[in-house]
Write a protein that binds this DNA or RNA. Sequence first.
DNA 1: CTGAAAGCGCTTACAG
DNA 2: CTGAAAGCGCTTACAG
Lengths: 333, 333
Amino acid sequence: MATLKQVAAHAEVSVQTVSNALNAPHRLRPDTLARVNRSIELLNYRPNRNARSLRTSAVELIGYCVPSWPNRTHLVMDQFLHALCAAAESTGRHILLFTAPPGVDGMSVYDDLHARRLVDGFVLSQTETRDPRHGWLKEQEIPFVSFGRVWKESTQPGPWVDVDGAAGSGLAVRHLHETGRRRIAFVGWPKTSGLAEDRLDGWRTACDSLGLPTAGLSIHCSEDTLDEGARATAALLDSPEPPDGFVALSDILALGALREVTRRGLTPGVDLGITGFDDSPMAEVVSPGLTSLRQPMDDIAAELITILTDPPAGPTERLLLPELVVRGSTAPG
Amino acid sequence: MATLKQVAAHAEVSVQTVSNALNAPHRLRPDTLARVNRSIELLNYRPNRNARSLRTSAVELIGYCVPSWPNRTHLVMDQFLHALCAAAESTGRHILLFTAPPGVDGMSVYDDLHARRLVDGFVLSQTETRDPRHGWLKEQEIPFVSFGRVWKESTQPGPWVDVDGAAGSGLAVRHLHETGRRRIAFVGWPKTSGLAEDRLDGWRTACDSLGLPTAGLSIHCSEDTLDEGARATAALLDSPEPPDGFVALSDILALGALREVTRRGLTPGVDLGITGFDDSPMAEVVSPGLTSLRQPMDDIAAELITILTDPPAGPTERLLLPELVVRGSTAPG
DNA sequence: CTGAAAGCGCTTACAG
DNA sequence: CTGAAAGCGCTTACAG
């Protein structure tokens, strides 16, 4: 393994000049630079990151806590991680994975990783109502950025990136309306979740603005399972004025709706339309395919990394729009 | 941020003694150790990992390439990552995530991460037939361990851990037999995949040893989708002697079988039994629940980390048994 | 534009 | 059992 010293000797310059060739090439005369680069190439030199980090006290590593399984909502975690990695790499950084107990109990792990200089900062996700991590990190002056808002807090500590769930519901409602649906229902979770409330509000607002009814058309599931989605759908279909469109708060609930509808001999995409949320891997693999709201993972990841590593002046809060991926559950073909 | 030097000054010993207190406490007199520890506590000292790594040239970081999405078989990736992290942490290590092009094109990324001393070694997964990475890493003498065998190779370079797919099929077949099934079919992929062949062989062997028929009872799907699983199941059910048990090569195919069976008015778990593979999150969330073969992720991760970081003498090849998680698709209730 | 020197914070033989 | 010294491989002012 070649070192800076060896490259310097080979190129007949000082180590400082080799370092400059790597980190500030404009400071070298072109011929010197070329000579140094030839030596680097020849010796297959790769700078030792630990030495660099020791000197600069930046490790170019970003900590991310892997959500503890089981946690049903993580069907898209691999997409998120891949996007996050790619975004980090585009700035020469990498993701360091770790586990920690949820809530404030896990903060010593964050503290430790930062104090030992294993990471420069953190990306938080799985943000929960009254999540204590944000305030704690802010107080310790440990750099971080959050994927997801801490709901119900008036002001959230630190920068965040999130997807606009209300706008997502709006997209779904308008798409169902454009494909001929006139009674569009919402299949959700209890209101206690900020995320659920956000998506529910979006549905109501969109229906109102299109002059569509909402009364008696929203229903709450107690669990995020196929059965609950099917049960809720059955209840809606059995009502005196059954809906012809269903905006489900999750892909799982939407799959339940799909099952119930099919069971009754109705054809999704023809007789009625169903949409889900998050465009999980299952949405593509069922038949008919499930129309769903995709989170723009690449954009989310890019924003997170930028905010963390190269914070812009001004407010660092980004609300991104989801994208409706249309499949057979709302459109025949 | 306190340093070793400051702790030494505070405890009135040399830096070497503080270092020993941390790394070889048995070398200190109990009272000295206690005094040093008190200073460490008081100053909230945390050793700088970069300095340590520079000196020892070990970073205690293990590289893992996040599979590029879309790749349908990764429904259980979050389980794997969580287990891998936890196993690494139990030895004081962490996982560094990165992306790389598949196959030999990506090897420069592996090489770079190792040469720059960002990682000590790698855990490989998503192993493919004739996977070139293993041989390449072995040749470069870069430490690694593989989750999954390189199929069809007579001898595989380097250590590996894998799950015994044939044994898994055997478990499924015997469970179906015990619950009264007498014609047990296999719903699989084309033989070209080593994994598929392994699981298919296990089914055949188990049926043979129980005196169950296999002729005309195995069928191949061209894709890993619900539709294909349903189509294959329909074909089997339409045959002159339809099966009453289905061992599906994946959870997705099994879900397709479940759909087709239900569509025909048959009750899974009562009229016939269906099993899947890998116990993906979907298996628990459908109704009836899908009986499936769980990969022992914690054991797999522990073996991988042990082999990589503390290689035992002798052969480092571990074949672990999957565990059958019984749900409603094979057992009523 | 180039180089000699100091130092980042540890650990590792080695001497006492 | 404890300590003085060297050195891991870089980068950063600073001087020339």
